[in-house]
């Protein structure tokens, strides 16, 4: 634990060197949803608002998108540890890092701490706006339930991180997989609109994705939106998928790490 914290501190010290890189990150989540917001408000507004009301029980499209962006920020941040792993591969320091007495979980933890701090700073404007826009449906109990849902989503996210970590160690290209899934997830998981809008193939794919259920429940608790299933059933699906993905992730990581250590990890 202490070694992991030292590694996290090293990450902070390196990041401090590049303050300019922080400024841009601050606006990224907001900018991702801005084109869709503009499309709704400057485009054919009435049709879209009607559609949203029918499909989700809310006319607060901006709040809907903001909550989606805040949720994704937290779920996805752990995946950034895979980019750190690839970064050490690229600069030729992976072997030095890996002979330290730190477990894989320790690496993921220490490389995620910086990301979590960063994402919290980035999410401040989004969260404040989301709460302000959803003030009529916001209660403390519902907020706690939403936080619980995010925690389960993060458990599922850990499952993905283990898989990505293993793939990167073994095939060196795990960052490409993270990039692909990180870009696909907001669309498939319903960050921008209900998954029913997606083409059928993608819609079915969305249902095996734990984050679709997590985001749907978070919005329900904070905005009183319609859910895909009955709330209790949906909570069971989310928990089952979260633990399933975590289990699969840990197993695949162990197998891939063993393979990577047997074949040698140097080079990329």
């Amino acid at each position: 634990m202490v070694s992991s914290l030292h590694l996290a501190k090293a990450g902070f010290l390196s990041a401090k060197k590049y303050k300019i890189d922080w400024y841009g990150a601050f606006f990224t989540p907001l900018l991702t949803i801005l084109p869709v917001v503009l499309l709704y408000y400057l485009g054919t507004k009435s049709g879209l608002v009607q559609f949203f009301y029918g499909a989700t029980n809310t006319k607060n499209i901006f709040g809907y998108l903001l909550l989606g962006a805040a949720y994704w920020n937290y779920v996805e941040v752990l995946w950034g540890s895979v980019f750190t792993l690839k970064y050490y591969m690229r600069i030729g320091q992976l072997e030095e890092i890996f002979i330290m007495p730190i477990s894989a979980l320790g690496y993921i933890f220490s490389w995620s701490v910086l990301g979590l701090v960063r994402v919290t700073i980035e999410s401040v404007p989004i969260i404040i706006l989301a709460i302000l826009l959803n003030v009529t449906t916001f209660t403390l109990i519902r907020f706690i339930l939403a936080v619980g849902v995010v925690i389960f989503s993060i458990i599922a996210s850990f499952g993905f991180v283990f898989l990505f970590f293993g793939v990167t160690l073994s095939f060196k290209e795990g960052d490409e997989l993270v990039s692909l899934l990180g870009n696909a997830a907001p669309l498939i998981g319903g960050m921008f609109f209900p998954v029913s809008v997606l083409p059928k193939g993608l819609e079915y794919f969305a249902y095996v994705f734990p984050f679709t259920w997590g985001l749907d429940l978070s919005r329900h608790f904070l905005m009183n939106t319609n859910t895909l299933l009955d709330v209790k059933k949906e909570l069971i699906v989310l928990m089952a998928l979260s633990f399933l993905y975590l289990g699969l992730g840990v197993l695949s990581f162990k197998a891939l790490q063993t393979k990577a250590r047997r074949e040698g990890m140097q080079g990329f």
């Binding site: 084109p35 869709v36 499309l39 709704y40 485009g43 054919t44 879209l48 559609f51 669309l187 609109f193």
Partner: peptide
Amino acid sequence: GPYVFSSRIVE
């Protein structure tokens, strides 16, 4: 996709 599919909502 999100931008294109959002615009498609209005048919």
